[in-house]
Design a binder for these strands. Structure first.
Lengths: 226, 226
DNA sequence: GTTGCGCTTCGTACTAAGTACGCCTAGCGT
DNA sequence: ACGCTAGGCGTACTTAGTACGAAGCGCAAC
């Protein structure tokens, strides 16, 4: 079949996962079909099955690839700075692959990248001097917040600015605006003002949680006093 | 066809959505097919299309049904108590319908129940005396945390106790345990101890965020001073 | 150099699931 | 009584995942 004479790009699971991520970025996750992916890679559907075990496995690989893009907390920074940088990185990655957010949950199999990530995160919390129970809490709380935030961002119809007004219009039209006074007030007097950005709440929340952890650690360190 | 003589249960979108939720609870979301749902309702696939516009719409309805189960903040409680109760309720609902968490994100169309919820939540924050910008932050941060937490809970292979040990075993076996000292320490010395529960971090995180909001409000109220 | 083995590659085709089309029936207002 | 409309459903088309087995190609031992 006059196939580019011998030079096979050698399909590998990684290469396939990479192409799948690119395809999802470009056309959306629902456009990611085995056939489309095969086309993209210049091969045929069934060929892919010799490298990945099925679509579920492929999704697992994609998820781990997403985790690989996230910058783990650096060891050369102050623990708090390291954690903030890491959380911002996580958010940025998730925002750049919005389709991945729902995926991250449905997959339970932790890949090596995820574990590496967990480890670095725990190490940073440890450097912060948090006792073990607080490390556990801190990690759970931080990640809940970070992923939850990214999730909301990915879902939001609009992030602010023009689109926002339209959405607000639609909602107000579809339902009785008078029934939702706070919602209206928030939208008109704050969200639709120039300069508003949903994303600005991210750093605020992050700061609150870190402050809370530090305070809790101090409280724990103090032997016993009201 | 000897059809129970005249007594039609009168299919409605609500009834269908309810049956769909029940089916997803029982057999998992992947078992929710139009055909299975029709069987469950004692009808045929195409009949459903006279009441819901397609599977996407059905999922929207299901999501709004989930929101309807969540207890909105009560007006007769102290604002902080009301918010805590509401957040716990949200978490409880999501945990009881774990399949719904990934769904909540992929659907962008806000249903009436969701709006009602937002409204009540904002009202509670308002009662707390938070200025508008802090209300916006507070809501974004709280919901990010609450949904993020539920999301992690829904994903977690095990919540603690027996299952945990197995999972840890698997991970340790699959990868090099020595490469993840913090992870090992956390698992062995904390997570696998009796009494550990991932869920306990929920109230802790909630408290930190609320404390942070109150502190920020106080700071905002103070004219200007370091 | 030839042959054989195994890793890829892929053509074919089956299955599951969403859903368009159009017929059929029952009830109801005129 | 009649036809109109809404709801129910049989049929069949389409998309997508994937099982099965044959065809192609490189390498190692003969």
């Amino acid at each position: 079949m006059a196939d580019q004479a011998g030079r096979r790009p050698r399909l590998t699971p990684e290469r396939i996962a990479q192409a799948a991520v690119a395809l999802a970025d470009r056309d959306g996750i629902e456009a990611l079909t085995i056939r489309a992916l095969a086309d993209e890679l210049g091969t045929k559907p069934m060929t892919l099955y010799h490298h990945v075990d099925g679509k579920e496995r492929l999704l697992d690989l994609m998820v781990d690839r997403i985790f690989a893009e996230m910058e783990a907390p650096r060891e050369d920074l102050d623990w708090r700075e390291a954690i903030i940088a890491r959380c911002r990185s996580v958010r940025a990655v998730l925002v750049s692959h919005p389709w991945s957010v729902p995926l991250l949950e449905s997959r339970t199999a932790p890949g090596p990248e995820l574990l590496r990530h967990h480890e670095a995160m725990l190490a940073a919390l440890d450097r912060g001097g948090l006792p073990l129970p607080l490390m556990a809490h801190g990690y759970a709380i931080l990640d809940s917040f970070v992923f939850g935030f990214a999730l909301e961002e990915a879902t939001l119809p609009a992030q602010g600015g023009e689109g926002m007004a339209e959405v607000a219009q639609d909602i107000a039209a579809a339902f009785d605006a008078d029934a939702y006074p706070q919602l209206v007030r928030l939208t008109v007097d704050h969200v639709m003002k120039p300069g508003y950005s949903f994303g600005s709440s991210f750093d605020v929340g992050l700061g609150m949680i870190l402050d809370g952890l530090v305070a809790a650690a101090q409280r724990a360190a103090t032997p016993a006093s009201a």
